[in-house]
Nucleic acid binder design. Structure first.
Length: 232
DNA sequence: AAGGGCGGCAACCGCCTGCTT
DNA sequence: GAAGCAGGCGGTTGCCGCCCT
């Protein structure tokens, strides 16, 4: 949580209103997008009132993160992305937000939905085995229950090391990128909001992303990109 | 053409965590 | 240290469109 958020923590509370539920209309989307692009987000619970929406803050946050924010990839997951999901899920379990962090432009909701579909397929065709090394990953029930983020990231990094023989990213100082990322500033909203979809694609050289796929792609131009974007 | 089944996706719900007072 | 609040996250549900019969 940023300092500014802390300063404004106290003043976030908004009066209860009769919140609207269900699908978002284009008009609501526009209002939310306009508001956030203009003002950023310091307190989600204050956003609906200020943006003129009859939604609760959580709903706005979810809508922004899963649908409206710039840089989101739409459409079907690539085989590489699917593989990444399966790989990470087998290592760290259902940590969707963490897994999504390694899939630029994808949300935890998307990852989760993919996994649920995958599980359905898996259970409907129980005897059909995968052709690669992931065949045991999907329903692996022996995943240790890890609670600390550092442990999870360690798991991810070691997992990725196993499979990245052809790609050995370097930050120039010899340290692993994932480690370096921890010391990088998160991208500011002002910088972030200036990203156009096209820029995103060119910035995230998709071929590079595909080859290294995970953990490298979120570190760009000295910024660490977070999938949650709450520290604006 | 109609309607039933199914899959994908969007959104809600409830719990947990972290912060402030 | 306890209470209250906001944000984050995973599980779940419900809607919608497509496909098959």
């Amino acid at each position: 949580m940023s300092c500014q958020m802390r300063m404004e923590y106290k003043s976030c509370k908004q009066p209860e209103v009769n919140y609207r539920k269900g699908l978002w209309s284009p008009d609501e989307d526009q209002k939310l997008r306009d508001y956030i692009l203009m003002h950023g987000v310091r307190c989600w619970s204050a956003v609906p009132a200020k943006a003129g929406l009859r939604r609760n803050g959580k709903s706005c946050r979810l809508r922004w993160i899963n649908y409206l924010r710039p840089g989101l990839k739409r459409g079907k997951l690539s085989p590489q992305e699917e593989e990444t999901i399966l790989k990470l899920q087998s290592k760290i379990g259902n940590k969707w937000s963490l897994i999504a962090l390694h899939l630029p432009g994808r949300t935890d909701n998307e990852v989760k939905n993919y996994w649920n579909s995958y599980l359905k397929q898996k259970t409907s065709k129980p005897q059909e085995s995968d052709t690669h090394s992931l065949k045991n990953s999907a329903l692996n029930l022996s995943i240790p229950r890890l609670t600390k983020l550092e442990e999870l990231n360690d798991q991810i990094l070691s997992c990725l090391k196993d499979s990245e023989q052809s790609v050995t990213p370097s930050t120039g100082d010899g340290s692993p990128k994932g480690m370096a990322a921890d010391h990088l500033p998160k991208v500011l909203f002002a910088d972030w909001s200036s990203f156009e979809q096209d820029n995103w694609e060119s910035l995230f050289n998709l071929d590079d992303v595909r080859s290294s796929q995970v953990d490298d792609a979120i570190v760009l131009n000295g910024f660490k990109f977070s999938n949650t974007y709450n520290d604006f």
